[in-house]
Design a binder for these strands. Sequence first.
DNA 1: CTGTTAGCGCCTTCAA
DNA 2: TTGAAGGCGCTAACAG
Lengths: 315, 315
Amino acid sequence: MQNRLTIKDIARLSGVGKSTVSRVLNNESGVSERTRERVEAVMNQHGFSPSRSARAMRGQSDKVVAIIVSRLDSLSENLAVQTMLPVFYEQGYDPIMMESQFSPQLVEEHLGMLRRRNIDGVVLFGFTGIREETLRPWRSSLVMLARDAGGMASVCYDDEGAITTLMQRLYAQDHRNISYLGVPHSDVTTGKRRHEAYLSFCKKHALPAVASLPGLAMKQGYDQAASVLTPQTTALVCATDTLALGASKYLQEKRIDSVQLASVGNTPLMKFLHPEIIAVDPGYAEAGRQAAAQLIAQITGRSEPRQIVIPATLA
Amino acid sequence: MQNRLTIKDIARLSGVGKSTVSRVLNNESGVSERTRERVEAVMNQHGFSPSRSARAMRGQSDKVVAIIVSRLDSLSENLAVQTMLPVFYEQGYDPIMMESQFSPQLVEEHLGMLRRRNIDGVVLFGFTGIREETLRPWRSSLVMLARDAGGMASVCYDDEGAITTLMQRLYAQDHRNISYLGVPHSDVTTGKRRHEAYLSFCKKHALPAVASLPGLAMKQGYDQAASVLTPQTTALVCATDTLALGASKYLQEKRIDSVQLASVGNTPLMKFLHPEIIAVDPGYAEAGRQAAAQLIAQITGRSEPRQIVIPATLA
DNA sequence: CTGTTAGCGCCTTCAA
DNA sequence: TTGAAGGCGCTAACAG
């Protein structure tokens, strides 16, 4: 704010030139150990820290990144953001947050604004409907989460592995009539891939497939649970924990306790409310870490855009 | 990034001097209508936007604010942040997010970092244990939420009103044995004030008071529900919806449906999982809007720190 | 190894 | 009503 010190002050106080101070600041080589120590001492003593804006102006980089979540109250995205933040802070990046509310148009508006702001990079939690051309200009400075788009860097969950793991577990527990509650195929990852993994497991093991793909909302899980429960059903796999929450509410209300629920997604809320549900952790925390690391690597030119898949683990 | 235009370019392209462009940019008076229009035309045509860092360097302000939430997955804080973000963006502020995890020490570290970053202002979701002296230096540029601290600006919920509203409603429904599940008094607002409002209502209406104050966590609500349920109890008031979630899990498991649950907090999750619970909305959304507005007003010198109380409304 | 010099993009005098 | 000049704090040549 007011009278902060500048490298000029530090230079004067330690009896060296501005550029020497700058060199110390940036850990550049070519400064004698003695000088460096002296300058560093003065810096600490006065709690000096360089002006971000001045650096940004020279370096062409503000060290600001944006995280666009679909919704702030998405439990799974929260888990990823939680691990992402410390990574950004450690590397000196300011992470600013925005909500897309699942609206492709809002994503466009946000990206437009970020472009004008000359931001360094973006982590975008993907969803259905985002046009590729919206993203293209960001190819080198955007990492998409939970979804892959041609040419863009992405961190995805192992959709097939997650479902297969659940099915195997249930199968090992002698379940032979396993129903499925999921998301429409218009959603490629959470929808199509998970559903297909379910179908393919059923086929391979000659199990009857009973599925419904209502959508992502809790209420949809609640409303559609009935439609996939046959008298034979002994287990129900849900594509997301949100759906599972809806389904379990239905089961509870109907006093049905003969059906084993299983779901992708391992949030604290679920663990508390329904510890009996079998869950695979898609690796939200790890995804967050990797996304942040990948974005920084791209920004700093240490990596090309690349696709990362996080392995799922049984919780 | 690369070859962005600068006011110099705009100046050249519109045949005026840099300072004139600057004047137009800042809506300063003393520019002829014709010149202004011409310059603005060129700006729009090229999608020009001034460099934030250069402005920051001159203006001493980065137009960056921080929002320190206790936890990213706090449902109530999310609701407030959700309304806060658009306000900041509209006014050209970049909101960066941090988690305090209810740790006073983390708050100190974050504030220290923000101080070095020379940030403009902070919205802090308050909790027990934050030392006043930590905050003092921020007096003019911090707004605390959900808690008031001497001299600091704050946006608080009407703790007493919220509880009283719930009690009145239950009383009107002929409940005469109302228990209470809350938070220890070390937490002044959610703990002490709400509990005292409960006690005072009981006293006034000659009702027996049965209360326990385990804490904020869902599990604590679950574990302590039993201790406040007597054979006569017909209603249970919870200080937060998290506690209510825990308590309702307990009631469900015990198959108790003779107890009407009521709680402060009106989150979408609660509305879905337990629409039967009577809830007051403490006004999270409004609190977020007001907090952002108040912070901006303080930063820009248009307001002194002041305490704001949001009225609670029956959901 | 170290200091000097020249900008980065913008805003702010100060003259014209 | 306008333009030219100077400087914000920092980094990147270029000299010593």
